[in-house]
């Protein structure tokens, strides 16, 4: 895979624009705020080294932060999610491991695998993000509802996007 680098740079640009200019402006009664940009971390190659994974997560989160005026908030959540990714990949690994040259996508590992994979990581990201944002437990269940609804919407977008872009 020679074109991994330009492809991922393009992906960052597209996802940040989609997040900042479209999804940040979606307002369903303040409960549903999809954070679609996490797709970038989900789709990184299996072989990505740990330090690069964390740095990319930090960069991506900071890029979103700059445009939505929330310094550090998205960066911390995305770093947390990147940290969990190798563990989750290990846990979900097929019996003979991941085949070299493949990517974590529906096309290679099926809808069921991809759904589980994105469900765990997106829930982790959204929990971290929303509870750091509120930073208290007094409205615990209100925040909880926001986490669940937003995660459901993000997962929906992530799964749908796989069928739109990576049909092959």
């Amino acid at each position: 895979m020679i074109n991994v680098l330009p492809r991922n740079i393009l992906r960052i640009a597209v996802l940040v624009s989609i997040q900042v200019f479209m999804l940040n402006n979606i307002q369903f009664s303040g409960f549903v705020n999809p954070y679609f940009y996490v797709l970038f971390i989900l789709l990184l190659p299996f072989e990505t080294p740990g330090w690069l994974l964390l740095s990319l997560g930090f960069t991506m989160g900071l890029a979103i932060d700059i445009f939505s005026n929330t310094p550090g908030l998205h960066a911390s959540a995305t770093v947390f999610m990147s940290f969990l990714r190798p563990t989750v990949l290990n846990y979900l690994a097929p019996r003979d491991g991941y085949v070299p040259g493949t990517f974590p996508r529906i096309y290679y590992y099926g809808l069921k695998w991809f759904f589980k994979y994105s469900l765990i990581l997106i829930l982790a990201h959204h929990f971290f993000l929303f509870y750091i944002e509120v930073f208290r437990f007094s409205d615990f269940f209100q925040t909880f509802t926001r986490v669940i609804l937003s995660s459901a919407f993000t997962i929906f977008l992530v799964v749908i996007s796989q069928y739109f872009i990576y049909r092959k």
């Binding site: 740990g50 930090f58 989160g61 310094p71 990147s82």
Partner: peptide, 21 residues
Amino acid sequence: HFFLLFILFETVSLLLVFQNN
């Protein structure tokens, strides 16, 4: 190094959050 880097990045970004709080 993976865990230490995680702690480092998390500290930096949470510092940013709280400084801005």
